[in-house]
Design a protein around this nucleic acid. Structure first.
Lengths: 212, 212
DNA sequence: CTGCTATGTCTACGACTGTAGACATCGCCG
DNA sequence: CGGCGATGTCTACAGTCGTAGACATAGCAG
């Protein structure tokens, strides 16, 4: 439970504005992910960075602005969705299954999001973050027309799985065999990736209607 | 002052324990759905029922127990998932698309859940509620083996759509054409309903792997 | 009518929140 | 070596939170 935000142990912390800001931001990402926007207090964020609460507001202006930066930073790297369109379904399914397994306990933007959307201000910031990073990128690599709503639908599926497996932790889905889950998720994602939302042609669903 | 007891037609509230308890519970469901567990205060719940804060604790013991009863009550009716297995995909898809449209603004258990899972105690209560009501029922009507994890996977999808459309309100999915969304959701749900998670058999995946 | 109990209100407390302003101290520059 | 700005801390303040105990009142039993 020590602060320990990357300090080497011996050095108490030298006066380094950039490093301190970074430590606060990292602590904020962790705190917001664990406790959510309302649950994480600035004092806790500060303690995680080894500083006092006032320094947080001094560097970021307010808790809300700190959250905005934390969201921006947390959403920037692609954690789940693959960059390569050709293997998007396989990669995304496998990563999602792996990263939501009970063993994996990394910090993740989806958990940060799920635990913070209760607050309307935080929800708005998250919406902006999704549009800026994930949504836009995903819309670009998604083939076919009407990519934007399908991208968000894919995000819905991903977020839902994260919610059930890592936040609520319903037992059946949490304990589901990873291979089976990966396959199931692959089939689902494939439907979103392959199916245009408005298939004017024949009404027949592209697949999955055959009982097998 | 008791400016007004909240009721309009049926007269001022007389001393009726059962009715008061009911009013508090209804107010709690609405408050928890709008603000989430942490965001809704007992004073606000009490005001919504036309009583004082202490009466809430007097009737329910604590905020946590009140929340537990609110979850139990809110999760009891089937709001989205159809009872009839034969039309499960169609019905569920249509209801989900309709009830998450921007026009619909009813209180809903999924929103209550999404805005409350940030709190660990609330998340545990919600998990229990899901298992007791939705999960068990859904597991019963879902055909095929391994119904429990597939039921929870379906809940993941539903919750994710609710999250994106009603809580975060990402524009593309929120404004998506309802018919197209219904069709898309139908295809997705059909995959969960029809596909066993672990099709060991000789043949490959039952569908959806062919690019079509 | 009197009295009693269920029903509801009032005051208050300790803990916590985000944030503002005043104060202290480190480390570079002359 | 001596300041001096940058960096960080301390105290404090309104406000809200959940909750406890004492107090008031309504409605029925006798």
């Amino acid at each position: 439970m020590t602060a320990d935000t990357g300090e080497s142990g011996d050095g108490p912390r030298r006066r380094d504005a950039a490093a301190t800001r970074e430590a606060i931001l990292n602590s904020a990402i962790e705190a917001f992910t664990r406790l959510g926007y309302d649950g994480a207090g600035v004092r806790e964020v500060a303690a995680g960075a080894g500083v006092t609460a006032m320094l947080v507001n001094r560097y970021f202006g307010s808790k809300e602005k700190l959250f905005a930066e934390a969201v921006d930073r947390s959403f920037a790297p692609r954690t789940v969705v693959s960059d390569d369109p050709s293997v998007l379904s396989e990669r995304t399914a496998a990563r999602l299954a792996a990263r939501t397994s009970p063993e994996a306990d990394d910090l993740d933007p989806f958990v940060l999001m799920l635990r913070s959307v209760a607050n309307p201000r935080a929800a708005e910031i998250i919406r902006a973050g999704i549009e800026k990073h994930v949504g836009r990128h995903l819309t670009d690599i998604l083939p076919g027309p009407d990519a934007a709503p399908r991208a968000e639908l894919l995000l819905s599926l991903i977020a839902g799985v994260w919610l059930m497996r890592k936040v609520i932790a319903t037992p059946a889905l949490t304990g589901m065999d990873q291979g089976a889950l990966t396959r199931q998720l692959h089939d689902l994602i494939e439907v979103i990736v392959a199916t245009p939302p408005d298939t004017g042609g024949g009404d027949g669903a592209p697949a999955a209607t055959s009982p097998g």
